[in-house]
Amino acid sequence: MSIQHFRVALIPFFAAFCLPVFAHPETLVKVKDAEDQLGARVGYIELDLNSGKILESFRPEERFPMMSTFKVLLCGAVLSRVDAGQEQLGRRIHYSQNDLVEYSPVTEKHLTDGMTVRELCSAAITMSDNTAANLLLTTIGGPKELTAFLHNMGDHVTRLDRWEPELNEAIPNDERDTTMPAAMATTLRKLLTGELLTLASRQQLIDWMEADKVAGPLLRSALPAGWFIADKSGAGERGSRGIIAALGPDGKPSRIVVIYTTGSQATMDERNRQIAEIGASLIKHW
């Protein structure tokens, strides 16, 4: 067993022997301040990774656009098919120029040779490549099948209805392509620590998230040296922004954090800054 596999296998073990965790309302004060600064709703939840206990939450059962955070769930569904012998990570998928959609920095470079399922998941999570996500959605049967996968996990809230990039439209009061912070946090925890996926697939999923290259201005910008984070960000229309993450000190994750916002007129930089400040408060009061 590799060191990384050992780390993920012992996530519940280490967490069980940690000192009790206590909620700190100071972080919620910052979440509410972010709402004021952005002029928009902000949803927040913080779960203990081992027990699933909610440590703090704000608007945990209000719907927010998922945006690209759905790509972690998508690759979880792909990995479940791999575990069941219905898919192979090494299978190569070929596609054409007509398949390319807006923001496809990886797939646009491989029109000639195609990409493997493993490479597509890596591109979808680490670079948020939209064509990679659409190609992977095709392998599982489309958005409705991802929703069905989530329902089978016990998540009857999260739903995907459309493809990239239309799913980022974020129309107010439109339930399409949305989740709730509580539902997303619980589902992410199941994917990373539950028995739904094999140990190898859980490790692969967290490795992809740990290698995320496009979430630097968010929670990662607030992390002290030595902290662990595996995350996936999302951005959408109407001032929408979000991030889902597993993080913790001492090089291992111990909490799940989900943050979503929508309806702001603020710039992307300002949305990023507010999420980073929430992260800084979380870490300060850990």
Rank of each mutant, 00 (worst) to 15 (best):
I140K: 03
I243V: 11
R162N: 10
F17C: 09
H5N: 14
E56I: 05
T112S: 13
T27H: 06
F228C: 07
G114S: 05
Y103E: 03
G52M: 06
L196I: 15
L188T: 09
P65N: 04
A225R: 13
H156R: 13
Q97W: 11
I125C: 08
P249M: 08
N168R: 03
G251I: 07
K53E: 12
P65F: 03
V214P: 05
L167F: 04
L223E: 02
M268H: 09
D33E: 13
I259M: 08
V214K: 08
P181A: 07
I140A: 07
T261G: 03
N173L: 14
Y103M: 06
E210R: 10
Q37V: 15
A280Y: 10
M66D: 00
A246C: 12
Q204E: 14
L197W: 03
S104P: 02
K252C: 12
T112E: 15
S221N: 11
L218F: 04
Q37K: 15
S264E: 04
D99G: 06
E195G: 14
L136F: 00
L150Y: 08
T126S: 12
G279N: 03
A276G: 09
S201Y: 05
D161C: 06
R189T: 09
G194K: 09
E270L: 10
E61I: 09
V82C: 11
A84N: 15
R118P: 04
A235N: 05
N134V: 04
P217T: 11
G43L: 00
A230V: 06
A280M: 15
M66N: 02
A148W: 09
N134A: 04
E145I: 10
T138P: 06
G52A: 07
T112G: 15
S128C: 00
P65C: 04
Y95R: 01
M67R: 01
T267P: 14
S68Y: 00
G234W: 00
C75P: 01
E145N: 15
R241P: 00
R63M: 07
M67H: 07
K109W: 09
V8Y: 15
F14H: 04
S240R: 02
G85N: 11
G236L: 01
G251K: 14
R202Y: 05
Y260R: 00
L111F: 09
T267A: 13
H156N: 14
S96R: 12
G251T: 09
T131V: 05
E62S: 08
R255P: 00
A124I: 05
P25Y: 08
A170Y: 12
E46I: 07
T179W: 00
Y95D: 01
L120T: 04
D161Y: 04
E210P: 00
V29T: 11
H156W: 11
E277A: 11
I229Q: 02
L28M: 12
H156T: 13
D161K: 03
A77F: 10
K252F: 10
V214N: 07
T126H: 06
D36T: 15
A170H: 09
V258I: 13
T126I: 09
D174R: 03
P25R: 08
S128A: 00
D250T: 11
L191N: 02
T139A: 15
L55D: 04
